[in-house]
Each structure stands twice: as C-alpha cells, then as structure tokens.
Design a binder for these strands. Structure first.
Lengths: 126, 126
DNA sequence: GTTATAGATCGATGTCCGTCGATCTCCAGC
DNA sequence: GCTGGAGATCGACGGACATCGATCTATAAC
C-alpha cells in the first residue's frame, strides 16, 4: 500500500527537540494489555494451545487421563501446563473420585479474542 | 453445566490396561499448534501487544521514533520487541533515510484469530 | 490396615526471555 | 572527508519457563 505517511517526523527540526509529536498512543490501557498478554502467554505453548483446543471441542469435562497420552511429555508436565492454564483463568477442574476433569471457562478468551479479531480501526482516518 | 461425562474412564477395568480409550484428540495438528503458539508467544508481552495495537490502528506506517516514547523502556528494548514481532511474521519495516517505519502484515493474525474466535465446536455432540 | 492408582506438587536442571548499556551501521548535512 | 542522529545489534545479567524424576495426597478395592 502507498498511503501517505501522516506519521512521518519532521525532516527539518530544531536541535534538541524530539523528532516528532506523540500523535500515536496505544488504545489499550496498560492494565488491559497486561491482562491480554497473560492470556496470550498462556496460549504461547503448543501443548497448552492443544489442551485448550481439546477442551473447547467438548462441552463436557475431559478426564486428565485422556489428555496425558495425547502428548509426548510426562504426566507431571501435563499437570504443570494445566495448572498454568488454570492460573490464567482459562480452565477449571473438578475432582470425581480418583479422576480429575477439566473444562474451559466460558468467555475466558472473550476480551483477548475480540482484540485479536478487531483488526484495523475503521474509524481511524489514516 | 451438568452434561454427562461421556469421556469418563471406565471405573472397572482389567489391571494393566489404560484407564480409558483415546477418544479425544486435538483438532489442530502439531505444526499448526506450533505456528499459532509462536504467534501467541509474540503477543505474550504487554509491550509487544501494545505495539501491535498501535500499528493496527494506522493503515500507514509508523515511525519507530513515535513508538519509543510510548513505553518506559530503552530504545534497544523497543527495537528488540519489534524484531521479535518481525520474526513472528506479524510486522515488517521499511527504511526511509534515517527513519524506520513499521506496519502490520495484513492477515498475519488471521489463522490464530480464527482459532481463538472459534470457541466450542457446535458439531461436537458432547 | 494394606495396596494400587490418579493426579498434584516439589526440587533440580538447562534453556529461554526481557532489559540494559555499549557499540555498530547507515544516512543526512556540512 | 567529518559529524551527529536513528535505529539495529551485541554481550551480559537476572529472572522466568519447560521438563524431568521423585514424592506426596487422596481415593478405591481388597
């Protein structure tokens, strides 16, 4: 695309001044950015991403014993990843006898998903 | 929700057999999971997430000198984060004279965004 | 009580990541 | 040529992370 560079700094300017005015700024507040970044970080591991993928495909709960053989890591590693997802607020678990069942928390990805899908701001005249 | 647990392991089973059949599996292939996880990892830092947010709000290119004062880190750190985003395939840059301009690569978030927005699979009878 | 099993937790280890200051490269102006 | 600035790169440092084996807890069956 060959859009004009409204955001170009001035090529000529007095020495000592910043190269340009701060005309851009993040729309997302710092707290919101940290919240969404923590969600993204939780999804930033292939095993955790696939765990979420499996759990989302099942409205019911999934037994941990089903999840472990899906990956080439030890049980303690899967348990660790599930804990990370739980602490990120993406999943929760329930115990029934010997077994533990995990499920995704509805709308836990809502804010982050809306931001990712947001794309370019059509109201921005740039 | 109180959906039945079709995925429960058998409570009675012969010793030595696995607790349950592998009836669940990730829909996303490993390569796709690693691809999307690398995108998520790139977004897993508040500064990088806000960088993407700023760049997406502007269809044109944004001068690096505008991005640096937005954050409380040094220039080299911002440059490092921009490099991470570039290597993740989310942004690209163009040099004009002394200044460098960054812009988001269109549809770079498409696959990941579609997965995040996908939610529960309605075709799954669980 | 004893034994066996599911799963969480702990401790150690090696690797990766975020940040910094310093340096390097490239370009513009003189 | 020389000088100065924008931004990329490098090396170092500290903290975080992924993985493992071992252990612990809780339940179920005997």
């Amino acid at each position: 695309m060959s859009v004009d560079l409204q955001l170009s700094p001035k090529q000529k300017r007095p020495a000592g001044e910043p190269c340009c005015e701060p005309v851009v700024y993040p729309d997302v507040e710092r707290a919101q950015a940290e919240r969404m970044a923590s969600v993204a970080k939780a999804l930033g591991d292939p095993i955790r991403l696939q765990l979420i993928d499996v759990l989302r495909k099942h409205a019911g709960r999934v037994c941990v014993c089903e999840l472990i053989p899906l990956f080439d890591v030890r049980q303690s590693t899967v348990s660790h990843h599930l804990k990370v997802l739980r602490e990120a607020g993406l999943v929760d678990s329930e115990r029934r006898g010997l077994w533990a069942y995990y499920y995704v928390i509805p709308d836990a990805l809502a804010e982050f998903g809306a931001w990712v899908a947001g794309g370019a701001d059509p109201s921005c005249g740039c």
